[in-house]
Each structure stands twice: as C-alpha cells, then as structure tokens.
Amino acid sequence: MAYKVILAETDIHRVLDRIAHQILEKTQGAGDVVLLGIATRGVPLAQRLAERILAFEQQPTPVGTLDITLYRDDLNRHSTRAVGHTELPTGGIDGRRVILVDDVLFSGRTVRAALDALSDLGRPAAVQLAVLVDRGHRQLPIRADYVGKNIPTALAEQVRVLLKETDGTDEVRLTEGTPA
C-alpha cells in the first residue's frame, strides 16, 4: 500500500533528543522520574529516552514496561489478544514521577487503560505522557506532555511507527487506510 514517510531515521533521533531535553527541563533534572514504556513500541522509546537522559546529564533513569491488554475497553470487539509482560523497575512507582511513553497518541484509549493499570500498580506522585507522534482524533480528554511531532491525519489514514528494535528500521509512515 502507498505510504508517505513522515519522519525518517534522523528525524526520529532529533525528536527524541528534544523530548529528552524537555523532560530534563520540565522535571528539573529527572531525578524522580520513572519511564514506563507502553507495549509494544513505547518500550524501546522509553529505553532510548533513558539513554539520552543519561548521556545529557549523567542521570540514570529507571525504565519499566507496561502491558495494558488486560485493561483495554475493546477486548470484546476483537478475538482474544495475547498478554504482554508488565515489569516495574526495582523501587517501584510509589511517589515517583511516572512518564508513560508510547509511539502514537490517537483516541486516547490506550493511555486511559495505562492510567487504570498504573493506579492498580501503585501511587505515583505525578503521571506525564510522552509520545513520538500525536495524530489527533481524541475520544477522551487526554493530552500529551511531550510530543515528538503533531501530524494532522484523516480518520481513515494509518500512522505506522517502525523502530530498529522491533521492526529493523526507524521510520514513521502515513498510509492511506481503508475506511473502517
């Protein structure tokens, strides 16, 4: 299917650099930050942000994984999904500033599920959201604190984020989708 490249490899690197800087700035040095990647592609993104924060200011940041399958509100609209792994960093999330990391912010339902999961896992002092792409069309009152790139899209279009860790290449594509 025909697609348009929205972010190339170098763009992605540049955008992540910026988000890392913004996190350091907004959190006064990221001392109390825990990065939680939302499975699947939020996990390598959280990892990369942690590497950058360490490189920029020698600040080690705990990274964890959050699988929100069991918290989805659309389970009964699809055939049964496999359950991914959830792993909190040692030290947990209580009293920490948790930054949820995901690849694309769309309806907001994934983030809603992640917030529900978080409240069952502990009591963070604050929760923020970092995404590589915000494509609009929110269905819930949710916004990101850190956005790599805003991409205006039509509802039928698809945004595909490819990452080296999961897909072998770094690229963000916009595909003309078939209307659902």
């Binding site: 699988d67 069991l70 918290y71 389970l75 359950v83 991914g84 792994h85 959830t86 529900d116 409240s119 069952d120 896992l121 502990g122």
Partner: peptide, 15 residues
C-alpha cells in the same frame, strides 16, 4: 502474568 497480580496491592484486573 496473572501470577504477578497476586503480589500486587490491588489484586484485581478489570478485564
């Protein structure tokens, strides 16, 4: 994965 729920403070999933 379900086993980890038993070790949590809130031993419940909304699934």
């Amino acid at each position: 994965e379900m086993a980890t729920v038993a070790g949590r403070e809130v031993k419940k999933l909304p699934t």
